[in-house]
Computed example of a mutant assay.
Amino acid sequence: MLKLNVKNETSRLRAVILGTAESNGPTPKLEEAYDPKSALHLREGTYPLEKDMVPEMEAVAAVFKKYDVEVYRPQIIENLNQIFTRDIGFVIDDKFFKSNILPDREEEIEAIEHVIRQVPSTHVFRLPEEAHIEGGDVMLADDHIFIGTYRGDDYPDYIIARTNMLAVGMIQDLFPRKKVMSFDLRKSNTDPYNNALHLDCCFQPVGNGKAILHKNGFLQEKEYEWLVNFYGKENIFEITSQEMFNMNSNIFSISPEVVISERNFTRLNTWLRDQDITVEEVPYAEIAKQEGLLRCSTLPLIRD
């Protein structure tokens, strides 16, 4: 049996589900794009190919092996994009949550059932269908749970609004001892520079008490300021809109001292090293074209 344990974003990683780019399927039609960044690359003819994405994911698998992390992979379903495991599930403490995702992605959850079956059934949860939530919006900070959402009345009009306030309330009910905080994110179906698909597209804790932030990802300045005060201004790396577009906040921590980051994130990687954090650089620029990076394609199961 798997004894799940995830309480924050940076403690030493022991087990993880890493997505797969194998049998990724044909390049989607423009009208099938889920987000504005994928749509941009489809229009420009630069949408990533399976042959370029498979080596990127295997580079991450190699880093996990180096640090003795147990890696689970989805069962490969022919012609299905199974890269972004964070969308389909997440762990809080010792509980596994299956996400309520876009209906045509349900197969992706079935492909990790061989892992979920190793968790006691009493610790596997799924919120009611009307409570939308995806793992990219759920950020753990020990006794705090930060959740990205969109509070606008036009929520149904945004395919990129993935987590609603009903789900936020239900998570609070399930974890009464934790402080659950929601953050209203900026959404755009058409402009990838002004769209925070998930909370991890504009915020990510790293190291011991540090964080990456992008102010424009938040609709409410006071909610952004709350995070600045929580971490302390001197501990925050503020990314530009171009860096947010490139997914600089979507790196992944193996421990407080080690992160996996994209090799082109020069400014960020320099700052991380200045904080005495080891940066394991990998090529991930092709996968990033689908508005997802290292955090999106990993689902941590056990951290110390």
Results as ranks from 00 to 15, higher is better:
C202K: 05
S99A: 05
Y224A: 00
C202Q: 11
M57L: 15
K51N: 08
R86I: 07
D93M: 08
A211K: 04
H214M: 15
C202W: 15
G209R: 09
C202P: 08
L199H: 07
K95I: 07
K3W: 03
P28Q: 03
V279E: 00
S241V: 11
D94V: 08
T240K: 06
I302D: 01
K233N: 13
E106L: 11
L213N: 03
Y155V: 03
A33M: 11
P176L: 14
A33P: 03
S255L: 10
N208I: 13
F125K: 06
V168W: 15
L42G: 02
H123L: 07
F245C: 01
L185S: 00
E286I: 11
L49N: 14
P55V: 14
K37A: 02
T278K: 13
M247I: 03
K210N: 13
N250Q: 03
P283S: 12
G45W: 12
F90Q: 02
F245H: 01
Q118L: 15
D154E: 04
L197T: 00
S253M: 10
E58P: 06
A21I: 09
T278P: 10
E78T: 14
R263C: 11
K3F: 07
A61W: 05
I277R: 02
L294H: 00
G25S: 05
D94M: 10
V71N: 06
T270L: 12
R267P: 01
P74C: 09
E262L: 15
Y193I: 06
K210C: 15
H41Y: 11
Y47V: 00
F237L: 02
I212A: 03
L272D: 04
I236N: 01
I251Q: 05
M247H: 03
R267L: 09
V124T: 03
V6I: 09
T10V: 09
S241Q: 13
N164S: 06
D191I: 07
A111W: 10
E234H: 05
D94W: 07
Y231N: 04
L4Y: 01
H41V: 04
Y47P: 02
E257D: 11
